[in-house]
């Protein structure tokens, strides 16, 4: 099959960027979207042109590296599918596909379809963990956890942090991502000890990063390749509300960016990075 790819080309973060159209012949319907880009890049390299930059790693839909907009939909038209798992048979012969990177202030563009998603890392750093004293690992089933709870936590933990929720949200909100991370830890007994501080820290970081707010419209869960439910946002808001109503000894911690690729500065270590 033949496809016309209209791809966002941007040399670097300071470049303005523009669309460029490429005709791709001999697309195998069994190829994934990324393999289709591989084929295009081979021809671009042969012609001596710059290949299209895109992020990828596992190519089996679990790492969260890949992702871009296809015709205005994050990860393309198939539900619960990342672009690496999206096969070309879902498109029509001769169709034009518009490939655009995630667009959000908190995801500054780096090159072509690649954006800087370290704001997600900083949200995790702010509170997306469970503090464990080192030593021997405890026995697997010392703390009994109901199947319902375990399944529920697992549903939230399925988040791969690809950023499709932010990309699909008209407000560029990261509520679904932050909610998923808060939920999957807070649902289990090991994570409940730090539940309040986690909600305060992660919500604070999410707000500092310049994401928009959640208006509960649900575009995120529709675009999510792991089908994270909207419920996680309600869980985040509940945890945040409860934590806000209590008095705390600990300060709310936020994480500052250590390096700023997006503004061109090199390693700029902040002495108060985690204060």
């Amino acid at each position: 099959m033949k496809l016309k790819l209209k791809i966002w080309r941007q040399r670097n973060s300071s470049d303005k960027g523009k669309f460029a159209s490429y005709a791709v012949e001999n697309v195998n319907p069994e190829m994934s979207m990324l393999e289709c880009l591989d084929v295009l890049n081979e021809t671009l390299i042969e012609r001596g042109e710059e290949p299209v930059a895109f992020e990828h790693d596992c190519r089996e839909g679990i790492c969260g590296s890949c992702g871009f907009m296809i015709n205005g939909v994050a990860h393309g038209p198939e539900r619960a599918t990342t672009v690496c798992q999206l096969t070309m048979r879902h498109f029509k012969d001769g169709q034009e596909l518009v490939l655009e990177p995630w667009r959000a202030r908190a995801f500054p563009p780096l090159k072509d379809l690649v954006v800087d998603r370290r704001s997600f890392d900083r949200i995790i750093e702010a509170g997306g963990y469970v503090s464990v004293s080192t030593g021997n690992a405890p026995d697997g089933n010392t703390i009994p956890i109901g199947k319902d709870t375990a399944d529920h936590a697992m549903d939230a933990a399925a988040c791969i942090g690809c950023g499709a929720c932010v990309a699909a949200c008209p407000n560029a909100s990261s509520a679904l991502f932050t909610g998923a991370k808060i939920s999957h830890l807070g649902l289990l007994p090991q994570g409940q000890i730090e539940q309040d501080q986690r909600a305060l820290n992660m919500v604070a970081q999410m707000n500092i990063e310049g994401f928009g707010n959640c208006t509960n419209i649900g575009e995120c869960t529709g675009a999510c390749p792991k089908e994270i439910p909207l419920e996680v946002i309600a869980t985040m808001n509940r945890d945040y509300r409860r934590a806000s109503s209590k008095s705390h000894k600990n300060h709310v911690r936020s994480v500052r960016p250590m390096t700023e690729w997006s503004n061109g500065s090199k390693l700029d270590i902040d002495p108060h990075a985690t204060s």
Binding site: N71, E100, A106, P109, N171, G210, F211
Partner: peptide, 21 residues
């Protein structure tokens, strides 16, 4: 929210939200 997406999409489709929302 306006500031959260300084560069808009050339194409954006709503797939999962109500008209009212």
């Amino acid at each position: 929210n306006k500031k959260a997406r300084p560069v808009g999409y050339s194409r954006k489709k709503a797939i999962n939200s109500s008209y009212a929302s």
